[in-house]
Every structure is written in C-alpha cells, then in structure tokens.
Design a protein around this nucleic acid. Sequence first.
DNA 1: AGTTATAAGTGAAAAAAATCACTAAAATCA
DNA 2: TGATTTTAGTGATTTTTTTCACTTATAACT
Lengths: 202, 202
Amino acid sequence: MNIPSNTIDRLCKIFGQLDILGKKSIEFVSSKDLAIAIGTTEYTVRKDISLIGVTGFTRKGYEVVSLKEQLGEKLNLKTQRKACIVGLGRLGTALLDYEKFKQDGFDIVAGFDSSINKIERIHTSIDVFSVAELENVVSQCNIELGIIAVPSEHAQDIADKLVRAGVKGILNFSPVEINVNENIIYSRIDLTNALRSIAARF
Amino acid sequence: MNIPSNTIDRLCKIFGQLDILGKKSIEFVSSKDLAIAIGTTEYTVRKDISLIGVTGFTRKGYEVVSLKEQLGEKLNLKTQRKACIVGLGRLGTALLDYEKFKQDGFDIVAGFDSSINKIERIHTSIDVFSVAELENVVSQCNIELGIIAVPSEHAQDIADKLVRAGVKGILNFSPVEINVNENIIYSRIDLTNALRSIAARF
DNA sequence: AGTTATAAGTGAAAAAAATCACTAAAATCA
DNA sequence: TGATTTTAGTGATTTTTTTCACTTATAACT
Ligand SMILES: NC(=O)c1ccc[n+]([C@@H]2O[C@H](COP(=O)([O-])OP(=O)(O)OC[C@H]3O[C@@H](n4cnc5c(N)ncnc54)[C@H](O)[C@@H]3O)[C@@H](O)[C@H]2O)c1
Ligand SMILES: NC(=O)c1ccc[n+]([C@@H]2O[C@H](COP(=O)([O-])OP(=O)(O)OC[C@H]3O[C@@H](n4cnc5c(N)ncnc54)[C@H](O)[C@@H]3O)[C@@H](O)[C@H]2O)c1
C-alpha cells in the first residue's frame, strides 16, 4: 500500500518531533500532542500512523523510541545521507555551517561555487570546490542530495550537473522552477512565495 | 466565495511567474505553461484562475499584465509590505541582505538581535536594533511581517513580542512549532524537514 | 473490584481537491 | 472560405484527504 504524499510530509515532521521528545527522555506521546507539535489534528495523526502499521497504547499514546524507530525504517531516515551545497553566497554559506543538519542525518560533505575567489576566502570545516569539480566529487563521494543556492539563471545548469553526477534528490532555493528527470526527487523552497502566501491571507 | 487554501498558494506562485514573464515582455501565457512553471496541471491552473473570476483568451491564453494586476488585487499583493527579521545570525543576515524581497514587494526595514556585539559589527543598509527595542520599532514603523531566525528556544518568546507589537503575519525558520493567536497568519519553514521529505521519497 | 477517564483504532461520512470530458471560441492554415 | 488546431471554460466525476462518530482497551482512582 502506498502512503499518501501529505502523510509522508507529516510523518517526517512527526519523526522530527519524536527526536526532540526522545532527547528529553519522554517515553510516550499522544496523538493530540503530536498534532499540536506539527500543526494538524489528532485524527490525522492517528490515521497517518495507522497507515504505516504502528500501534500505540490506550491511555498512554505512542511509545516515542519505538515509533521513531519504525518511522525511520519506513521513511528511509535511518542512515546518514550525504549532501552538498552548490552556490556559496549568503544563503549557501548559512546552510553550509548549520550543524543541526548533521545531527538530523544530513551530512553536508561538500560545497561548490564558481568563484575561485570565494572558495579561497571561505573558512569552514567542510570541503569547498570549484563547480568544475562538481560531477567528479559528487559521484566519487556518493553524494545523494544536492542543495541549489545559485542565482536563478544557473539553477537549471547546476541541476543537470547534479543529476549527471548521480544525486537522488534536489532541493532548490532559487526562485525558478527547474526540470529534472522524474526519477529524481525534487523540491523547491521559494521564500518570496512563502511571504506572499502569508500576505495573501492578511 | 472563499478561495481554497491550496489555490491561494498556487495563485501566489502564478503571480510570481507572471512577474517574471512581464519583465521579459511576454504578453500572453497559457494554462499549460503556467502549470509547468509552478509544478501543477493545466486543469488546476484554469480552475484556480476561474475561481478568482479572471478570464483568458481562446487560443492565446491569459494576458500576463492584466492577470497579474487582478491577482495582485485579490491576493493583497499590490502594496509594499514592511517586514523585519529577528535573529541576525547566519540565516538572518542572509535574508537581511536579499534585495529581491524588496523588488517582490517585501521591504525588510529592520533587523533585531539580542547580541549588542553582533548589532555593532553588522554592516548593512538596513537598520538593526537590539531585541529590547523590537516592540517599539515594530509598532512605530507599522511592520506587518515578522521573520523569526533565532535559536528555537527563543522562537516562542520572539513570536509573542512580534504579536504584541502588532504584526499580522509571522514566518518562522526555527525548527519548533510556536503558538500564536489565530488571527495571526503564521507559517513555518523547516529546512531539515524539507530534506527529510525528499529522503523519504528515495 | 468497580468506575471513570483517557487515548488509540477504524469504518463511514464529508469535504476538498484534482482530473476529466466535453464545449466553445478564435487564430492559423490550406 | 472552410477545416484544423489550440486553448480557455466548466459541470461532472473521481480521487484524495480530512473529519467524525463510535468502539475498545487500559491506566488511574475510589
Ligand atoms: N539570500 C537569501 O536570503 C535568499 C532568499 C531567497 C532565495 N534566495 C535564492 O538563493 C540563491 C542564492 O542566493 P544568495 O543570496 O546566496 O546569492 P549570492 O549572490 O549571495 O550567492 C550566489 C553564489 O552562487 C555562486 N554562483 C553563481 N553561479 C554559479 C554557478 N554556475 N555554479 C556555482 N556557483 C555559482 C556565486 O559565486 C555566489 O557565491 C538565489 O537563487 C536566490 O534567489 C536567496
Ligand atoms: N543556518 C541555517 O542554515 C539554518 C537552517 C535551518 C534552520 N535554521 C534555524 O534558523 C534559526 C537561526 O539559525 P542560524 O544558523 O542563523 O543561527 P545563529 O546562531 O547563527 O544565529 C542566531 C542569532 O539569533 C540571535 N539571538 C539569540 N537569541 C535571541 C533573542 N532572544 N532575540 C533576538 N536574537 C536572538 C543570536 O545572537 C544570533 O545572532 C535557528 O532556529 C535555526 O535552527 C537555520
């Protein structure tokens, strides 16, 4: 049985919340509390969790550790995944240095930029390369995820390079949609649009 | 008649695309091309546009300028809106200096941080203040939108301050959900979760 | 031990969203 | 001019998603 798309997204959020609860040594959590934490309803949480076949305990809720474990299994979130960032400008460098990604299972192992100048000046513990080396480095290191933070006019070109190098997924921060082969998992975060979506509801 | 939530989000994307097309002096655009640009189907685009009562032209598509104009009207996107950023760390400063926000109608007029040190060292054309001044500045300047880029443990506190100061909307980049009065338009972008949502589909 | 309250599980219903199938209009082409 | 093609408009249908209503289990309390 295949899991609906919205459910996958919510389960990912639940996974994140379980991680937080686990660190606080909280043993059980109710569908209600999960609902509040991820911004949905208790019904939806229960439906979502039932969909992956996990059951909770009456009057106690779901066991945090075990639910997280099983979600990790079903959602492919158990193994650390290698990622890279292309475009080391303001946004790219902010992302590059964000340690939490690693704690959460995403290991940023490389950064790329077209400006040699920038590459030389950046100081970070992560290896940075010229974009000319992208295909080599990405395929050599088995990087699975590419994060695009280049100006929009170069986004498509970078996406093509990433795909040729063998990434499985792409997250695009540039404000244009790009085309990728349909076996690549692709998603875009458009911050201007996020602001517009808020303003449109004023 | 009230517009469905998904439709609002898509119309915002369409608005952004129309802006791009307008700058290229493209006069007409088909539902098909809009669909490709925003990642949906032509049926959905037509339904969405029909919902706001705009009509296109057979065999030509929609008139770019006029559709954008009418969307701007319906979606409240015609007036420049003032925004501020709280938390001038890596992410906050990246956002602070992103000129495109202004071009797109979001005028970042202030930045706030709790570290006096940071405030003094930052060099940007935008006014930066101590977070102690937040409520004063935000209400004085009639800032409508607050962008939260502080560590998660302070997110709720900052949200409360923003609400007290009178913002209408909040965009939260911290990885925890916060509670705001339901008349505040609230949305959260969780980058870790965005990566998880991709990995879960591998 | 019995009662009560809490919380999951779940089929059914409702609501929302997307898609389809068809119509109509108009530009283009032969 | 007439045929063809393209594209919007739209009611109907289908699919998806969410919510509801009710059942069941069990922890906690008296
Ligand atoms: N800064 C923000 O807050 C922000 C917000 C929303 C969206 N974005 C988007 O994110 C992207 C990056 O934004 P930014 O503000 O960091 O821009 P920036 O100009 O600061 O950085 C862009 C970087 O990309 C590099 N680059 C250019 N072409 C390249 C190529 N072909 N290959 C590799 N690197 C290349 C540049 O050298 C530069 O370092 C843009 O698409 C922007 O629209 C940024
Ligand atoms: N950097 C990233 O790429 C990234 C990615 C995803 C999410 N985030 C989230 O965005 C937020 C900011 O991340 P960052 O990497 O920029 O962190 P950062 O530590 O670089 O910056 C945080 C800033 O907030 C300021 N601050 C702390 N408490 C404050 C308060 N009460 N009021 C005002 N300012 C305060 C600090 O002085 C600092 O300048 C965090 O919640 C983080 O989890 C960041």
